[in-house]
């Protein structure tokens, strides 16, 4: 029946995703960098331009918080008494965590949609859901799509490029509109 498979094809599904600009995801994040590999629990809240990410260690400790908006970003790492600020999140993550973490792109990729700007490759599955994309030097692969509040959203997202690999395993999607 209509509910079990995505309806309307690629274009319509992509248009639907563009309506979502306030959401929250909860799940796990694994980061593999040239020096280290860490895994933690992730809570990411996006409200139009404003975002807040909590990343906590596997045993509930060592939580980091990244928050910000279009023109500023703030990072609080475990052990810091007060947060550090910068113009954008990418600067902060690279400077203080050594992560090349494209926050403003992932905000779109996480929904199963390319970010604005140049896209070098897009592959859709036969249901019209994004399976793989290449953008800004990153390769993004999608799987475990499921329906949440009427939208088809990915459950496993593997982002690799620039010697980094981020894997998002999303357990809870909340769409606020």
């Amino acid at each position: 029946c209509a509910l079990l498979t995505p309806q309307g094809g690629q274009q319509q599904l992509q248009n639907q995703l563009s309506h979502i600009d306030s959401w929250q995801v909860r799940g796990k994040l694994s980061v593999r960098s040239p020096q280290d590999s860490v895994t933690g629990y992730l809570t990411w809240e996006q409200q139009q331009q404003d975002y807040q990410l909590f990343i906590t260690g596997p045993f509930g400790q060592g939580s980091s918080r990244l928050s910000g908006s279009a023109d500023f970003a703030e990072l609080l790492l475990p052990g810091w008494q007060s947060p550090q600020r910068a113009d954008n999140a990418e600067q902060l993550m690279l400077a203080h965590m050594g992560w090349n973490f494209p926050v403003s792109d992932i905000r779109h990729w996480v929904k199963g949609q390319p970010a604005p700007g140049q896209v070098s490759e897009l592959q859709f599955d036969d249901n019209g859901l994004l399976q793989q994309l290449q953008q800004h030097g990153w390769q993004v692969r999608y799987s475990r799509y499921s329906r949440h509040q009427g939208y088809w959203l990915p459950g496993l997202i593997k982002v690799s490029g620039h010697n980094f690999r981020f894997v998002f395993a999303i357990k809870e999607w909340t769409i606020n509109g």
Binding site: K28, S30, T39, Q61, A169, K171
Partner: peptide, 24 residues
Amino acid sequence: WIYDMDLEQVTIRNMDQRVQETPA
């Protein structure tokens, strides 16, 4: 061995590095 089924990933580490991350 840290096996994460959701992330489809196993990380192997030395035990002594892990005490601070694994209070138990």
